[in-house]
Design a protein around this nucleic acid. Structure first.
Lengths: 80, 80, 80, 80
DNA sequence: AAGCAAAAACCCCATC
DNA sequence: GATGGGGTTTTTGCTT
């Protein structure tokens, strides 16, 4: 048409961009799943691998949090 | 060392691959968030856009069925 | 000790009160889960029941408005 | 009516039970919020209190998990 | 408005 | 092959 519904197009474009990104994201999710399958085939347990990865991710953060807590514990108890 | 722990290397490699993929995945997640922000800035409602995307993902048949059940329940409750 | 740490006791008390309340809250959450299970056993769809409950919680006006926006978006995308 | 819609009644009853439970749950949530307000008025920081509570909740679980990981790490690397 | 915490949906697995 | 359960991710609502 000569007078396209601009707003509609705009919305559609945004949604299509999101859908494309979500597909990509899903693709990577599948890749991850494949690596787990490969690991499993090699004899590793996926559940344990997930734990390890979580631990590696958490460690810096958690140590920080733990420290923060300690500090604040003392402060809260008026022992600073 | 002259006798590297092959199993350890193998496991570490698998884990590092997964960690890299997860980073990528996170990056795309951030991109998606950006598009929603852009949409919001343009005046669109992110929450409803999410609904739309969910609906588009469903098979027409499933979508119809779900809608039908919803209507039935609403009717049963006098909410039509 | 002859000089108990009053501040520490106070903080501990507050925290214990919260922990007790959170337990209660969790208990009710479990009850809710049970009702959904019962509903499911009777043939109802839990997911749709949740939708219904969400709708009932909204003010009629808000619900109408949301529905209207959804329709507008669907129309814009040719999904009506 | 002399022939009530039994199914409708049944659904309504289930939903009303859930709604009542959710109200209770919300009430407790409000109580919790109140305790936090009280704590704040006494000079404690809610965010820090939340951290403490989370930590107290996590500790047993996390120590277990950590130990499990350690075991499995060794096992996975053939060092058991 | 931006991050954080709670709730909900989804997905995979194991089990019967 | 279905069915529940655990865990992960996604969404929503809240607080600052």
């Amino acid at each position: 048409m000569s007078e396209p519904n601009v707003a509609a197009d705009q919305l559609r474009l945004l949604i299509e961009r999101i859908e494309r990104l979500e597909e990509e994201k899903k693709g990577i999710g599948d890749d991850i799943k494949d690596v787990y399958l490969e690991a499993k085939a090699t004899g590793y347990d996926a559940k344990i691998m997930r734990q390890i990865i979580r631990l590696r991710k958490m460690q810096p953060h958690d140590r920080q949090e733990m420290e923060a807590i300690l500090q604040t514990y003392l402060a809260a108890l008026g022992m600073e």
